[in-house]
């Protein structure tokens, strides 16, 4: 702890390597579950006769023998739709939260905070009943609607927090030039907010891609399963066939990991907190 708080002082080299060792051990332990998943998925399994130390046979096997391709397409579709609609709904709302100066806007911000703290299960049961009546249960569009609703609070805050960093003078200049409020929002504010939009999109992506509870309640037939429900069902049916289970798990694991690898600087959980307390 001592050295940790004094980065600028001349810390003994020994201390540096000691901390390196601690980080190395902690990181290795933390990565064990993920590394085992990756390793098991490329090792020859009991069902695949393959002598090579590394093989893609497990993947071929699960794509041929299960609905994993269908679940993958469903998940991708639902997730992309959620990301796009979330940003389209949250960006204008975030703009209003950022620029609006009335009591109603503050009240709306507080309402979003309260909504965020509600247990998902409180909303899911009545929504399931409503969606069943209008034919949106066991339906991917219904799922997207629920996901967009779930991302609403945080996505709006994230966008508002980003818009706060864009100086109003830019817009005022546009207004002087005869631009409408909407025009300046799209052409001035939104155009300069790519990092904020990306952060919000990543948040929505992870929420939709990873959700298990809503999908579990809403989806009943295998042809509309998303990966979380599909993978879990596959896991329960093939408990001992770890090679296949882990291959399916890796299919689900890759998209978020790839996105994280390329866009990790936009993973701003701090932004949520800042905007939460600032209002």
């Amino acid at each position: 702890m001592s050295a940790a708080t004094v980065p600028l002082s001349k810390v003994a080299l020994r201390g540096r390597w000691w901390r390196f060792a601690v980080l190395l051990i902690v990181t290795t332990v933390v990565l064990v579950p993920v590394l085992s998943t990756l390793l098991l998925s490329i090792r020859p399994g009991t069902l695949t006769a393959d002598a090579a130390p590394i093989t893609l046979a497990n993947f071929k096997h699960v794509f041929a023998s299960s609905d994993v391709a269908v679940w993958l397409v469903n998940s991708l579709g639902v997730t992309l739709a959620t990301v796009v609609v979330s940003v389209i709904v949250a960006a204008p709302a975030g703009y209003v939260l950022s620029r609006g100066r009335s009591k109603a806007v503050s009240a709306y911000s507080l309402l979003l905070f309260l909504i965020q703290s509600l247990p998902a299960i409180t909303a899911i049961i009545p929504l399931f009943i409503l969606f069943a009546k209008v034919g949106l249960a066991d339906n991917l569009i219904g799922l997207v609607v629920v996901y967009v609703g779930s991302t609403l609070s945080v996505a709006t805050w994230m966008m508002a927090a980003y818009f706060d960093t864009i100086p109003q003078t830019l817009e005022e200049a546009a207004w002087v030039d005869g631009c409408s409020v909407f025009g300046s929002f799209v052409r001035v504010v939104l155009r300069n907010s790519l990092p904020g939009v990306l952060s919000t999109a990543i948040f929505a992506f992870l929420l939709a891609w990873n959700d298990y509870l809503v999908a579990l309640v809403f989806l009943k037939s295998s042809n509309v399963f998303t990966l979380p429900v599909g993978v879990q069902g596959f896991f329960q049916q093939n408990q001992t066939d770890w090679s296949s289970v882990m291959a399916v798990a890796v299919v689900m694991l890759l998209p978020p990991v790839v996105i994280f690898a390329f866009l990790n600087k936009y993973f701003s959980v701090g932004g949520i907190g800042g905007s939460l307390a600032g209002r």
């Binding site: 902690v26 579950p33 990873n210 694991l253 978020p256 990991v257």
Partner: peptide, 20 residues
């Protein structure tokens, strides 16, 4: 970056790994 992994990996995947 590596230490962020548990937060990024879907729970369905990590719970399967923990089960194993």
């Amino acid at each position: 970056v590596l230490l962020m992994t548990p937060w990024v990996v879907p729970i369905v995947v990590s719970s399967t790994a923990w089960n194993w």
